[in-house]
Amino acid sequence: MELAVDLAALTERVAPVALARERTMPVGDELAGLFAEGGLVRGRTVACQGPAATSTALALVAAAVDAGAWMAVVDLPTIGLDAASELGVPLERIVAVGTGGDPARWVEVVAAAADGFDVLLVSVPAQLHASAVRKLAVRLRQRDVVTIVLGDPGSMTCDGVLDTDVPQWSGLGDGHGHLRERRVAVVASGRRLPGHRRCQLAISA
């Protein structure tokens, strides 16, 4: 009898628990320091903001896409593919979807994309129904998708925000040279990114 109780307690202790650390996607060395888990935790939503938001977002997903993940880019037709490629994102696994600015369709598209893609890079339309957004957030969490929101997240709730500081340019002079390198300080904040960790991102050739 006692043995059975012990065993029950033991099973509880050895039952597999999926730690956040084990459900991560890799992140390049420069940005890994922002995350306590050392990588992007699946199912979370992170917003990238500030003057170097796009480059930061691309640098953030590069390692994961390079490791075989597929990325859907929703409503961001201006994404610079050269820059993405330079930051290490293989373009073979990028699919872009346009929703034509219809909020209801946007929710549908993002939900469908969550079924097949591991990483979503999205821009959020202004008028979204709060109830639809809540349902979508649950879906994104369940599907273990990492969602990167570029620009204003609107009514989407984000687990973390990466804010970029004013970039420092080098290489460009007064009528000579060319843009050679940019250094940006990236600061993490938000619910799931405690401690205001910061790091330096250098974007160069």
């Binding site: 201006t78 610079g80 993405a84 940019r182 974007i203």
Partner: peptide
């Protein structure tokens, strides 16, 4: 143009 390339085109 030489890299880095623009991230928004």
């Amino acid at each position: 143009l030489p890299s880095p390339s623009p991230a928004t085109v």
